[in-house]
Design a binder for these strands. Structure first.
Lengths: 203, 203, 203, 203
DNA sequence: AATGAATGAGCATTCATTCAT
DNA sequence: AATGAATGAATGCTCATTCAT
């Protein structure tokens, strides 16, 4: 039995890792704290020592596991480039990231397929709506910049295009997560994104 | 009190209508048969008289409520037209149908946001994967036809384009269902679909 | 397995009888629904079929088991007599009733010793305070009448005397319930009540 | 940080003070050691440093907080006087003490309303029964002395009178603690006690 | 056709308690 | 002296499901 602060951090991490596994196996609603505890090698009590309850375990898990992409997005944006380049890289690289990064793929599956609306998760849902809106706005602006520098066709409806971009991205992600044997994202990502970009470039 | 076959049919329908409401309110997992019964003005026993159990109520509901779109798709396809016309109509009209048809919108929300993976619904998930694959194949073929008749660019990867089409479609649907205040589908559908089509047309 | 309406009433009664036994054995807080169910020969589910939860079982039990005394009080009052007679009978007969009526004694013990303040029982506590106040008022009036008809000393503070009466009554009850071997109520009731009455009669 | 014996004593006291507050707020059964610790500004571990467990905290609290009345009783008895005087003073002064001494009132409420029978407190209950019996005997003797010196009526049943005295006392206390807005003890104590004493004095 | 009585398995949550540091 | 990590036992409550009527 270990009881130092470092061990505490290790235990917390073990619980979160276990939660990822168990939530993905049974879905959030059917996942039992008991199973998470067993998977983590601790008792249910330990979970309650670190988290308020089941919803909080879920929220903490999401917050942690989304850090990866957030960093990826940050670095792509700060890397710079023309609007078209940035938009293309953003869409392509995150799609590829999903296929290469097991952790990220699992959270996505958890969020998309293994979690349904539940009053106790309401808060998280609201957050998702807001962040989606923010993404659309961000891309809308990117396309506007692209029009100004002559990369994109000035006749397109920038908001519609932004919605199409985000929709395409999330739709394709979902399709692939639904059945990764249907196609390889790594292989198709560029073609798919090109298909979209060539629909808005200045011809 | 006499009970005719019609009465029985009415009760069955009342239960299904109630299920739609309750599943959408609480999500499949948290919805209680008790609530469905109350909403339908009957008791739990009646539900068991018409359905095997909760999963069967859900399945029956989906089967019935998807009939509308299936008919729409059928009529669009049988209406004929060039591949590009058919593809365009298909994507646009279903998007619009979703905004206009309350019932269809509710099933979509139920399926996308209010239902998560559950062993008892496994069968339905498998069905979804298969039907998605069928849709991709169908569009893949449509695009191939379009290339042959010179409507689409012969250099595009038809499968990638089909995936993009389905992904775009489902992604935009999801986006709108997530927050119908974010944008009006009726207004954007054509622009969005055009954005996609102009990415694959023969220039 | 019986499923008629009459059986339902029997089951409800069995649950309440069992609750009386189990609450008295472990105290309200420590009593387990499991034990009540076992004692009643049903499952926990059956309890929830009839009652909202543990507090409601308790409340229902009290309401039912206090009917006996309420009837006794009613009949004593309606029997009539001079104020002194009524007051004397009231105090004496209820004290005796407690020793003779096993059910009533058990509720009293339950309320006095086996139940402590709990937020979930708040409602019941408020009711107790009110009914105590009503009793004091009732006796206050009885004494006032007694003064008018010359039975009681006109110099006494009627409210103080009423409080003394109710206090004496409940205090002695409590004492006896605490240890029925300390004294026999049947034997002492009259002496004790006389001791009080001779303190307020008109000498 | 140096920790002297005084510091230790201070911590112990803080825990006991906190226990008084928390036990009165939630009742013994529902009071959490966690809450007591928080109220005392320490952690649960500290409580276990000073006490064996929850029952021992409770017992220690009672022992300490009853000292006040015990001293009062002692001084009244040693002050001397005729039996009637001593008995009258005893009853009156303790009633008044309850209204004036916040600490004493709180223990009484704790014992009477906030603590129910629990196996772990069995010991304390037995002690209460014994001490009640001792009090009755003490008063019984006091009354016997009063009869011998001609203060009390020689025809009364001394044990019944003693029981009435203790019952009256505890009943009135309980009544007041139940709702201190119902009446002021300070104001009524003498009338109430007089009412009792005039029932047994030698007329 | 429909009711409603009763079951029983399932589970999150609470907390007193232990103990290494 | 005091902390805080972790345990583990305990239990109220929910609900899908069964079935006699």
């Amino acid at each position: 039995m270990r009881r130092t602060k470092d061990d505490a951090e290790i235990t917390r991490r073990k619980i979160l890792d276990a939660a990822m596994v168990v939530f993905n196996q049974y879905g959030y609603a059917s996942a039992r704290l008991e199973d998470i505890a067993a998977e983590a090698g601790v008792t249910r009590g330990a979970i309650y020592h670190y988290f308020e309850g089941k919803p909080e375990v879920y929220t903490a898990l999401l917050n942690e596991r989304f850090e990866g992409v957030n960093n990826l997005v940050g670095s792509i944006v700060s890397d710079g480039g023309t609007p078209k380049e940035v938009l293309g890289k953003l869409l392509t690289k995150i799609l590829v990231f999903m296929e290469e990064n097991r952790e990220y793929r699992m959270v996505q599956e958890l969020v998309l397929f293994k979690t349904a609306y539940l009053p106790e998760l309401e808060e998280g849902m609201a957050h998702k709506v807001k962040s989606t809106e923010a993404t659309i706005s961000f891309i809308d602006n990117l396309i506007k910049e692209g029009i100004q520098c002559g990369e994109f066709d000035k006749n397109i409806d920038t908001r519609a295009a932004a919605i199409a971009a985000v929709g395409l991205f999330s739709g394709v992600s979902t399709l692939w997560l639904l059945n990764d044997k249907m196609f390889s994202i790594k292989k198709y990502a560029e073609s798919i994104v090109d298909c979209f970009l060539s629909g808005i470039i200045n011809k």
